[in-house]
Write a protein that binds this DNA or RNA. Structure first.
Lengths: 190, 190
DNA sequence: TTGATTTCTTAACTTAAGTCAACGAGTTCA
DNA sequence: TGAACTCGTTGACTTAAGTTAAGAAATCAA
C-alpha cells in the first residue's frame, strides 16, 4: 500500500531512496467500514488522511440541513480544517464507503519534517498545487449555473454519482435535491 | 516597508534575526499606478506580490463578460495561477488603485529557500493557512444566497465597496450588476 | 420476504435572479 | 462647454430555483 503513496508523491518530485524510506517509516494504514464517522462536529482533530481506497465526505449543518463540502476519493488528501489545532470542528467526516487510508498526525509530521527536510519542501509544493486547484474550482463554481456545475461534475468526477446519494451531490452543487432532480430531467430531454 | 512584510510573517512565526535578514535581502518593492495591468490573459507569469498598500483585482472573461475572481488588499499575497509555469494565464491582474508591492520571483524564492530552510517551512504553513481560509470562503459562498453573500462581504471586507466599482463586486458575488443593485435596495428597505 | 425507511421524482405555487431596455448622474476629454 | 462614456438604477418580463406536499422507487433490516 506504500506504493500508492509513493505513486502519488511521484507526481510532484523524483522519488529517491530516502523518500521511499520516509514513507515506509511513517506509513500507518487503517480501514474503516462504510458509515464510520471519522470526525464529529464539536470535537478535535489530530488526524489527517491519504485515501488509498474508498470515499470520504465532509459536511456540516446549516439551518438544520446537511451541507456537503467535499467528496474525497482515491489519492486525495483529507486535512480537517482544525487539524492539529485546539479548536472544535464545525464539520463531520464520514466514510461513504469502506475506506482504506494512510493516517497522519502532527507529531509524526513534525518528526518527519525534522528527519527529512525535503519532505517539508514537498509539502509546500503540494499545498500550493492544491490551493491553485481549489481556486480554479471556486472560480468555475462562481461563474456557472447549477446545470453547468452538474455537467462539469460529471466530467471532472465521473463515477462519483454512482458512489454517493443524489441529495448529497445536490448540496455539494449548492442546490436542493428537487432542483437537481429537475436538472437531470432537463438534460435527458435535450 | 520591510516592516510590513515582517509584521505579516510574525503572524505565523517568531521573527528571528535570521528571518529579518532574509526579508531585507530579498525585499524588492515596486509602485504601480492605478489601472496598471500586471498580468494579461495569454501571457506568462514570473512574479508574485505581497501588497504593502493598494488593491489588485484578478479577473477573466467568460461569455464576453468580465468575471472578478478576487480582490487583494494590504497584507495579501497574490500568486498568479501560472506563476513560474510555462503555461499562459487565463487571468488578468489589474491595480484598482495606486499600489505598492513586494515583488517575488521563482529564482529569488529558490535561492532564499536554499539559504534559509526555515523560510520553506514558513511558506508551507502559510500555504496551508491560506488553503484553509479559501475552503471556508468557498463553503460560505456555496451555502449562501446572493443577499447573504453581500452582507457577508460587508462584514469580512468592509471598505472594499468604497474602493471598487459595484459591477466588479457583482461578478465577485456571482450575480449581475442589476441584481446587486436590487439586493442593496432590498436591504435598505428592511 | 416483507415491512419500514430512505431516497428520488413530480406537481403546483412562490420567489428571486436573469434579460432587455431605458434613463439619469457623474466623469472624461476634446 | 458640451458630446460621449461609464456606471448605477429602475421597470417589465422571463426563467429557474426554492418550498411544500405527495407519492413512487429503491434500499435496508428484521
Amino acid at each position: 500500500m506504500e506504493d500508492k503513496v509513493l505513486k502519488y508523491l511521484s507526481n510532484y518530485t523524483s522519488t529517491t531512496k530516502e523518500l521511499e524510506g520516509a514513507v515506509k517509516e511513517s506509513a500507518f494504514f487503517k480501514t474503516y467500514k462504510k458509515g464510520t464517522i471519522l470526525l464529529k462536529e464539536g470535537s478535535f482533530s489530530n488526524e489527517c488522511y491519504f485515501i488509498v481506497e474508498g470515499c470520504i465526505r465532509s459536511y456540516f449543518f446549516k439551518d438544520g440541513e446537511e451541507k456537503t463540502i467535499e467528496f474525497y476519493t482515491e489519492e486525495d488528501v483529507v486535512t480537517p480544517v482544525n487539524y492539529g489545532k485546539s479548536t472544535p470542528s464545525r464539520y463531520y467526516l464520514e466514510c461513504v464507503e469502506d475506506t482504506v487510508v494512510n493516517v497522519g498526525n502532527p507529531t509524526i509530521e513534525k518528526e518527519m519534517y525534522q528527519k527529512y527536510p525535503q519532505l517539508e519542501s514537498l509539502s509546500r509544493v503540494i499545498a500550493e498545487v492544491i490551493l491553485t486547484k481549489q481556486q480554479e474550482t471556486f472560480t468555475e463554481f462562481k461563474t456557472s449555473t447549477p446545470e453547468e456545475r452538474y455537467l462539469n461534475l460529471l466530467k471532472t468526477k465521473p463515477g462519483l454519482l454512482q458512489r454517493v446519494s443524489q441529495y448529497q451531490i445536490a448540496s455539494y452543487l449548492g442546490v436542493k435535491p428537487e432542483s437537481l432532480s429537475r436538472i437531470r430531467k432537463r438534460i435527458i430531454h435535450e
